[in-house]
Computed example of a mutant assay.
Amino acid sequence: MSRTERLYKIDQLLRRRRVVPLEVFLDELSISRATFKRDLEYMRDRLNAPIVWDREAGGYRLGGAVSPGLDYTLPGLWFSAEELYALLVSQKLLSDLEPGILATHVAPLQERIVSLLEISGKSSDEIMRRVRLLSMARRSVAPRCFALVARALMERQRAEVDVYSRARDCVDVRIISPQRLIHYRDNWYLDAWCHWRNGLRTFALDTVQRAKLLDQPAVEVEECVLDEHLASAYGIFAGKPKARAVLRFSPERARWVREERWHKDQTGETLPDGSYRLTVPYADERELVMDILRHGRHVLVEKPASLRRRVAEEAAAVAQRYAASR
């Protein structure tokens, strides 16, 4: 019997019986007293199991105090994709932190994550060596700017920020009321009320070059309004959907795309020839055009005409550039 199986057996015995004598554990598990003591110590220290010795009843039982914020549960013998991803992301983010005021608080969290990973029967080092999280096109954010924006967000204050526009190659000064932070495709974004534009906008935090906290309360935008305006269309760009993109993927590419989620309100259908028609709402076509072009000749924009024309122009420009470089 593996250690993981023993831990589950100990847990089952404790839950089935009010009190479990030591001899019952040793008999059921076919282990020595020393091995049982090690397993018990692991469950208490690493899994936060509230196992106590009841002297009057002559056995072990559940019922000790649990550390604040740490519930006692045994995870599965292996993790779901979402669980493993969450654990590894948490471990990576905590490991990447610079030593600071959070150091003493972070250490117990890291130990807890390690213990959860190891319940699978493998060491956390082995799991992290075998399973990698790769970032792509991650852009760095100035720590001071991030801290000030986050502070303004949580303290519900306005902020003055210098935002670099890559499209226009210039810096704009904006007064904003931060609403929420978004981590999307390995980068940080800020949904905010822009007092210059008098409307909701999304800012890439890597473009914020300076941030200053203002002694003015932030404008409050209701959550339902934020969701309607900023989460109802494709990608990170804000705005209510202005159109629905209808894309037809080749039978070959359909094998991948039909399993992908481009948007929460997307619809899809497999056509008789094996191709796949995907329909997604969008407000700003910039990000959508980039995602369409990465599929090359395997995708065709059917509707609307404006998006079809934009993609065709981009594809023609690419072909012309390659032709000119021969």
Rank of each mutant, 00 (worst) to 15 (best):
A167C: 08
L93T: 13
W78A: 15
L77E: 04
D96H: 01
G63E: 02
S95H: 11
I119P: 00
L153R: 06
L84C: 11
P143V: 00
I127R: 02
L94T: 05
V149H: 01
V163K: 07
G69P: 05
A107R: 15
Y60P: 07
E160Y: 06
R139T: 09
V161E: 04
E56A: 15
E118A: 04
L87S: 01
S140Y: 00
L88I: 09
V66H: 05
G100V: 04
R174V: 01
L153K: 10
S115R: 07
F146Q: 06
I101H: 11
L97H: 00
R55Y: 12
R139W: 02
Q157L: 12
D172C: 00
E155H: 03
R132C: 09
K122S: 14
T104G: 02
R156G: 04
R129C: 07
V52F: 03
D71M: 07
V52Y: 08
P99R: 03
I175F: 00
R156W: 08
C170W: 06
E126R: 14
L62P: 02
E160D: 11
Y72S: 11
A137E: 08
A103W: 08
P108C: 03
S123N: 05
S80T: 15
D172E: 11
R130W: 05
R158N: 06
L116Y: 12
V161H: 02
L87M: 05
I127H: 02
L109C: 12
A147T: 03
R156N: 14
A81S: 15
V173I: 14
L84N: 03
R132A: 12
V114A: 14
L116E: 01
Q157C: 08
M136I: 13
M136G: 01
A142E: 14
E98L: 11
W53K: 09
L134H: 10
C145W: 03
L116C: 10
G58W: 04
I176L: 08
V52C: 04
Y60I: 08
A137C: 01
D169K: 15
I101E: 14
L93P: 00
L77R: 15
P75C: 06
V161W: 01
E83A: 11
L70W: 12
M128W: 07
L62F: 13
S67N: 12
A103I: 04
S123R: 12
V163S: 00
A57I: 01
L102M: 12
S165A: 00
C170N: 04
A159S: 07
T73Y: 14
F79T: 02
D125F: 05
M128H: 06
R174K: 06
R129I: 03
